[in-house]
Design a binder for these strands. Structure first.
Length: 195
DNA sequence: AAGCGGATCTACT
DNA sequence: GTAGATCCGCTTC
């Protein structure tokens, strides 16, 4: 079984410093966001199960992938079967398979290889095909191992969401250079403009 | 069958 | 700092 906690808020903190591996490339997770179920209007699980978010309502220990703005983003599912929710992987530090990651990402600085949800999946080679993949099965190309020591954690509002932008459900390792920059959702920024 | 918005990224100013 | 590209899935006709 996995070491994940059924609460996405708890698991979000547990994932900081943990290492996600897919084949030759591994990433030390430095930034995540928690997404809940029915009470979280920013979550894909908010309106109940659909074909797209079915994995969120499945058993824990799986990877939920979704396509957005031409990119693939990945969540770790830790909630019990039947309950929606997940933890979005926003950024990490490539600790294994640097050459493969550089090939996939092109000519960028190392600290940017897995900076941002879309970039993280690209560095690891995660696509929509990996949706539902097992994270704790020896047969799976994925593995997820806890960090050795507990890092110093900061919290703040989630990036790019237009609803529930006030809750501090984004967590990152304090001072880590691979953490992405905060941005308000364009839709939310639009609402603030006068006229 | 078509429209639209979104948990984004990059380049350019 | 800001605008454009980009594309899947949900909503609506």
């Amino acid at each position: 079984m996995s070491w994940l906690d059924p609460s996405t808020l708890v698991t979000a903190r547990l994932l900081l410093g943990a290492v996600l591996r897919r084949g030759p490339v591994a990433v030390r997770i430095t930034e995540v966001e928690a997404y809940a179920a029915a009470d979280d209007p920013a979550s894909h699980a908010w309106k109940g199960p659909t074909r797209r978010n079915a994995v969120m309502f499945g058993p824990p220990g799986r990877l939920y992938t979704y396509a957005m703005h031409g990119h693939t983003c990945a969540n770790v599912i830790c909630t019990p079967e039947g309950v929606g929710g997940g933890v979005l992987l926003r950024a990490g530090e490539v600790v294994l398979g640097l050459e493969d990651a550089r090939t996939r990402r092109g000519d960028v600085a190392d600290h940017r290889l897995a900076r941002g949800p879309g970039n993280l999946t690209r560095a690891l080679g995660i696509t929509m095909v990996d949706g539902g993949a097992e994270l704790f099965d020896p047969e799976s190309p994925f593995s997820l191992t806890p960090g050795d020591e507990e890092p110093e954690i900061s919290a703040g509002p989630r990036v790019g969401v237009s609803r529930a932008a006030d809750v501090a459900w984004r967590f990152w390792i304090t001072g880590d250079p691979t953490v992405s920059a905060y941005r308000l959702a364009r839709a939310a920024a639009r609402d603030i403009q006068p006229g």
